[in-house]
């Protein structure tokens, strides 16, 4: 069974063994509006917790996507690069951004569970 956690930068992480799948939350997708461009990190790239690991753009503006955990990018979801609008349709499901090999599992403890994240998102709407 995978475990799902959330970051203060509005990313979700689903953990299976030492691999984390990362995407942006429903809340973030809603806030961005119509997503028209996605840029993903290169496979094999090492990224640091809260470091930039992708870009999403709506008609209005560009925003960085951050990785909630440190590690190596093992896979990226090319389908959302071809069809960025898919991110708005299923941000927390099929429209994940990348998979990452977790370097330090203790970083996961700093992330929120669903209830805490929903509360956080309500209090920090932007």
């Amino acid at each position: 069974m995978s475990e799902k956690k959330y970051s203060k930068k509005h990313e979700w992480v689903s953990i299976e063994g030492d691999i984390a799948t990362v995407g942006i939350t429903n809340h973030a997708a809603n806030l961005l509006g119509d997503i028209v461009f996605v840029e993903l990190p290169d496979k094999g790239k090492n990224v640091e917790k809260e470091g930039q690991a992708g870009v999403v753009e709506s008609t209005k503006a560009a925003s960085d996507v951050y990785t909630p955990v440190t590690g190596e990018i093992t896979e990226t979801n090319k389908s959302i690069v071809d069809d960025p609008a898919a991110v708005n349709k299923d941000p927390e499901g099929t429209s994940w951004f990348f998979k990452i090999k977790i370097k330090n599992k203790s970083e996961l403890n700093e992330l929120m569970n669903k209830t805490d994240y929903e509360k956080f998102a309500k209090e920090n709407p932007n």
């Binding site: 509006g33 119509d34 028209v36 709506s58 008609t59 209005k60 609008a85």
Partner: peptide
């Protein structure tokens, strides 16, 4: 108003 609930693409 920058957009309404249906979003920029639909408004466009």
């Amino acid at each position: 108003p920058v957009q309404y609930p249906s979003g920029i693409v639909e408004e466009h």
